[in-house]
Design a protein around this nucleic acid. Structure first.
Lengths: 246, 246
DNA sequence: GTCATACATTGATCGAAATCAAAGGTGGAT
DNA sequence: ATCCACCTTTGATTTCGATCAATGTATGAC
């Protein structure tokens, strides 16, 4: 049971568990430190392009990014909103299946693919940790399919706001006295529309409708205040048990 | 490098790689054999219910199943079509997030959760193998989100037929002389509608439309013949490079 | 054979979201 | 401050898929 010194601890990427893992040794951790680098992207920058080579694996340290695909005729669908500590890329494949684009400034912790794959092979805990993360993302992707396939525009918007608030709850979302929640949308209306499978106009209209019905309060177009979280959840068609199992 | 005897090889479940794995030993494989059982479900049977306990992990050996969620008001969305060697359940969670229902008769290879989790912890190759499978399913789920969010009814249907033909291509799909493909739908029109995020009527109408346009041929309602696979792919909005990277 | 049942197709009408179009806001550059 | 570019909202109209309704078609029981 090695006690690790902070200087080699990695606390801001998916591999961070190794810093507190009882049965990993310092050599492995040092190896991990050697191969990782940090990188910061400007707002709007592409972190990956669908179909193009992706010879590294990254974990988001700060900021948000979208994962999306654009059809030839311009229709775009966002398939995931990436937030810390989500990962980009995967072991065993040298191509990205989707576009990944920064929303605002994004910092990632990055590993070269070969070195990363070697680490996954050599270090069982990394594979296990990645498996858990992947399965969680898989459940989330399937939950979102229900939203895309069967919900109305209003329900989609409510579901998104609720899920975003839940995701930010681990981090920075402000809890207001009286059960309210406030959050800042990392997306423009257009990006939101692409995520919900709607047009920008419908998205804006439904946002207005939720505001007029008192379910949300908009101080600015991207500053959302949810006075009654339960009420908004109900609008998203939730059965009152506090959301998806994920 | 142990050469394994057939009697302890498992060739019909996700763990089958162990039978040919050079660096695993016979003891581990024997342990794996001890904890697994086979189970067959009748058509329509539930293999899991959303929100209910699921104290085992299974891999489909034969047959098909759907993974779906039903909202309180009856709207249902299928989030995945399970075929061999897809898995049901996951390490680290004792609840199912979705309903899993057999389409026709289904046989699974089943492990009790505790024993399976122990195996995952103890056997690095199992974790790696599961990781690869999960990441493939994740990409597939995200690809499907593009279909659900942005495609028309006709495109959805074409995309589904194309993807089903591709999945069955590893197995049983008949390749006809002249580049055609024939396949048997494992789903009723209603189940198909639930998968595509459409109603049964729209699904049926689009099926008819594809038939009238010569893109498919229906000998029976569930016997589909695709005379020109490329033409149907194009209808699904594919850019000609042979489908998703998955 | 007839009947019952579930599945599938087709038709008529309706409605939610898309599309087309224009006007309001907001923030940064000069 | 003024202008400009981009984002957002709102309005008018259209369209695709949903809904309501009926008819057609297989399969198995008896």
């Amino acid at each position: 049971m090695t006690r690790l010194t902070p200087i080699i601890a990695c606390n801001d990427c998916p591999i961070r568990f190794r810093a507190v893992c009882a049965d990993c040794d310092a050599e492995e951790l040092a190896m991990l430190e050697r191969v990782k680098t940090y990188r910061t992207y400007a707002a709007g920058a592409h972190l990956a392009l669908a179909g193009e080579g992706l010879d590294h694996f990254s974990s988001i340290v700060s900021g948000c990014a979208t994962m999306s695909r654009t059809l030839e005729d311009g229709r775009r669908q966002t398939v995931g909103l990436l937030m810390p500590p989500d990962f980009i890329g995967r072991p065993g494949r040298a191509q990205s299946a989707f576009d990944v684009q920064a929303l605002g400034e994004v910092t990632v912790c990055r590993f070269e693919r070969r070195a990363f794959e070697q680490m996954v092979r050599d270090t069982p805990h990394i594979a296990t940790r990645l498996l858990t993360m992947s399965l969680d993302e898989l459940d989330a992707a399937r939950d979102w399919a229900v939203v895309l396939g069967r919900m109305t525009a209003r329900e989609k918007l409510a579901a998104f706001l609720v899920s975003l608030a839940r995701r930010q709850a681990q981090g920075s979302t402000a809890r207001l006295p009286g059960g309210g929640v406030s959050l800042t949308l990392p997306l423009t209306r257009e990006e939101l529309a692409d995520h919900l499978g709607l047009t920008i106009e419908t998205t804006s209209r439904q946002m207005t409708a939720l505001r007029k019905d008192g379910l949300i309060d908009l101080r600015q177009s991207r500053e959302v205040l949810i006075p009654d979280f339960e009420a908004l959840s109900a609008e998203a068609g939730e059965d009152g048990d506090g959301g998806p199992i994920v």
